[in-house]
């Protein structure tokens, strides 16, 4: 499996190997936060079915691994199936050693290990769609700002003085993957209700597309007004970080609003129960 993953990562365009190496470190940090009781929700301290039945969980995990390893003889990509079983087996091992209650705290961090798998190998076909969507966002942003933009092809925007092509390495996949992990972790830390975490997660993809479209538009404007040197210089990638900053604030503001609503609903519910009791 390690050989297959290394091959996929080496062939990959999207930096999956670095994510695979970074994710275990991130999981270590999340485990530290989980056992310090930092997450807002208390749900992560409650034992679940998988933790109460570690043998069954381990059986599912190892079965996935065995099936994946067997099928890998025909198609190497089946190692992905084997990889999906490893976090399950790890969780089962923790539940058996620490007990279901204590292992429950590690549920989310261990689940994050799935992000260490080379997903980009399987979502490469999505790249074309993302490229076109990012180009569309950039086109509309520039047109709304009053620029005259024409299409060279479905992913190349042309302005009389400069052009930008949204190729595979510009699709927004990296931004989307990062924002997905961010919203998952941020929601886990700050939101009391599962539904609120889901809202934040769902917002990740459109926000990533919007940021990438604006990034492409900004590179075209940098080229138009500052020339090729400026467009391909520091701000070429630096712009992505600058445009990323407001997204964190948007997620924070929305998260606060969602959590405040959940708290108000819980208070009203408990006040109603108090009024009904004799």
């Amino acid at each position: 499996m390690a050989v297959w993953a290394t091959q996929v990562w080496t062939d990959g365009l999207l930096g999956g190997a670095s994510t695979g190496l970074l994710m275990p470190a991130l999981v270590g940090g999340l485990l530290w936060l989980a056992y310090r009781g930092v997450p807002a929700s208390r749900a992560h301290t409650q034992a679940d079915f998988a933790g109460r039945h570690p043998s069954a969980t381990a059986a599912v995990g190892w079965s996935l691994y065995a099936v994946g390893a067997t099928l890998a003889g025909q198609s190497a990509d089946a190692w992905m199936l084997a990889g999906l079983g490893l976090p399950l087996s790890l969780y089962a091992g923790l539940a058996r050693t620490l007990g279901p209650q204590s292992a429950a705290r590690a549920r989310f961090p261990v689940a994050c290990l799935w992000f260490a798998l080379p997903w980009e190998h399987f979502v490469r076909d999505v790249d074309g769609t993302l490229q076109r969507a990012s180009a569309e966002v950039a086109y509309y942003a520039l047109t709304l700002a009053g620029y005259s933009i024409t299409w060279w092809d479905e992913v190349t925007l042309v302005e009389p003085d400069y052009w930008v092509v949204v190729n595979e390495t510009c699709s927004g996949m990296n931004l989307m993957l990062t924002l997905s992990v961010y919203t998952l972790v941020y929601g886990w830390l700050t939101q009391r209700l599962f539904i609120n975490r889901l809202w934040l997660l769902l917002l990740g993809a459109p926000l990533a597309l919007l940021v990438n479209g604006l990034r492409v538009a900004s590179i075209l404007l940098l080229g138009k007004y500052g020339g090729d040197a400026l467009a391909q210089g520091f701000w070429h990638t630096g712009g992505a970080y600058v445009l990323f900053m407001p997204v964190f604030w948007v997620l924070y503001a929305l998260g606060r609003r969602l959590d405040a609503r959940a708290t108000a609903t819980a208070r009203m519910s408990s006040a109603g129960q108090s009024a009904q009791s004799p």
Binding site: L14, G15, G16, S18, T19, V158, P160, D161, Y162, W163, V164, V165, V166, N167, T169, C170, S171, G172, M173, N174, L175, L177, T178, N212, R215, V216, I219, L220, G223, K224, G227, D228, A231, Q232, H236, T237, A240, Y241
Partner: peptide, 11 residues
């Protein structure tokens, strides 16, 4: 006037 791609930063 020139132009090019717009690669995003690594994940």
């Amino acid at each position: 006037g020139g132009g090019g791609g717009a690669p995003e930063p690594e994940t």
